[in-house]
């Protein structure tokens, strides 16, 4: 059964228009960050969301926790309509859905000790009685493998990887069922990345968490997710079981991405570019299938029809007219 269900959400950001544009009557432009995205997240799984920079994956993540309000669509969490929540119900939702941020350097309040940061979350949500907060803070630090004395220290005394652990501990403080991790390791050194990824997997095992893991690193997706959703220019183009998609990707874009995964063995390097050209401007997405200008197999129909995300005769959904 799905824990989180997203139905057709869109988010557009109006672009700044200069006075000249206005006087010349140029149309209002908007960045189409997320377009008609539908998605299911199942209890206890790790769902990966991958895509190039600027494809809207972070915006999607922020919509899920209502840091952005979607312009259209609906989000259900455990049967409740998330976008309609207010007051105490919304706080209850906040307690169950937490986020881990990309930049460990700006995601912690530099003027608060680690203990104060974690204690505040515990106190605001009455997670434990006031007297037990210090003990619970120590447990949380232990859970993310930090020393107990970290509580009295300030964020600047820690390394990037350690800070990310603090960010994870803060998310875990309110005992959520779903954690949305927005590129949690892309700001870290490769050696540290592995430790944080392992921590996520271990925590998921121990606490039965559901995880949405946003990244642009396909190797991470392959390593740690059960299912994967591939995004391109604000839309999901393919979503299904990770192992099967990696074995036989159906969308030309997914095929190109997987071909482009860096290979350690020189003999297996293909040497060819993954996808030709640049990501089109999200201010003015191409008509039809957004991928058609870069697609090696595009036909005339691709230039006119927007393909829906459907099974198309396969075991999982894909948004390509030619699939099937």
């Amino acid at each position: 059964m799905s824990l989180l269900s997203v139905r057709g959400i869109s988010k557009r950001f109006p672009a700044r228009r200069g006075m000249v544009d206005m006087l010349r009557g140029r149309p209002k432009l908007a960045v189409h960050a997320v377009e008609q995205v539908s998605l299911e997240v199942f209890r206890g799984e790790t769902l990966g969301i991958v895509g190039e920079s600027g494809c809207g994956k972070s915006t999607l993540a922020r919509c899920l926790v209502r840091l952005h309000e979607p312009d259209a669509g609906a989000i259900d969490f455990d049967g409740a309509d998330v976008l309609g929540l207010a007051g105490p119900e919304r706080r209850a939702f906040n307690r169950r859905v937490q986020m881990v941020f990309q930049d460990p350097y700006s995601s912690l309040n530099p003027r608060m000790t680690v203990g104060a940061t974690l204690g505040e979350a515990l106190m605001v949500h009455n997670v434990v009685p006031k007297a037990e907060i210090p003990r619970r803070v120590r447990e949380l630090l232990d859970l993310v493998h930090l020393m107990e004395n970290a509580a009295e220290r300030y964020p600047h005394e820690f390394s990037g990887g350690q800070r990310q652990r603090i960010g994870i501990a803060r998310a875990l403080a309110v005992e959520p069922s779903l954690i949305i991790a927005d590129e949690p390791v892309s700001a870290l050194d490769v050696s540290v990345q592995a430790a944080i990824v392992n921590l996520f997997m271990e925590l998921q095992d121990r606490l039965g968490l559901t995880l949405v893991f946003i990244t642009h690193d396909l190797r991470l997706v392959k390593h740690m997710t059960h299912r994967v959703a591939v995004m391109y220019l604000g839309r999901i183009v393919e979503v299904g079981p990770t192992a099967e998609i990696f074995a036989a990707p159906r969308h030309p874009y997914t095929q190109a991405l997987i071909r482009a995964v860096p290979q350690v063995k020189p003999g297996r390097r293909s040497g060819e570019a993954a996808v030709m050209g640049e990501l089109p401007s999200p201010l003015n997405p191409p008509p039809g299938c957004a991928f058609h200008p870069r697609c090696p197999v595009a036909t005339a129909a691709c230039r006119e029809t927007v393909p829906g995300l459907e099974a198309r005769g396969g075991a999982w959904d894909v948004a390509c007219l030619l699939a099937g």
Binding site: R62, V65, L67, R90, R91, F93, N94, R95, V97, Q98, M99, F101, Q102, D103, S106, S107, L108, N109, P110, R111, M112, E120, A121, V124, H125, G167, R170, V174
Partner: peptide, 26 residues
Amino acid sequence: NGEYIAACKVLGYSTPRILFRHILPN
């Protein structure tokens, strides 16, 4: 616009708490 403020919002903190405990000291 700092991510620590986004974290406060995701944790459901009240606006006065965010303003006076988080933004003001910084």
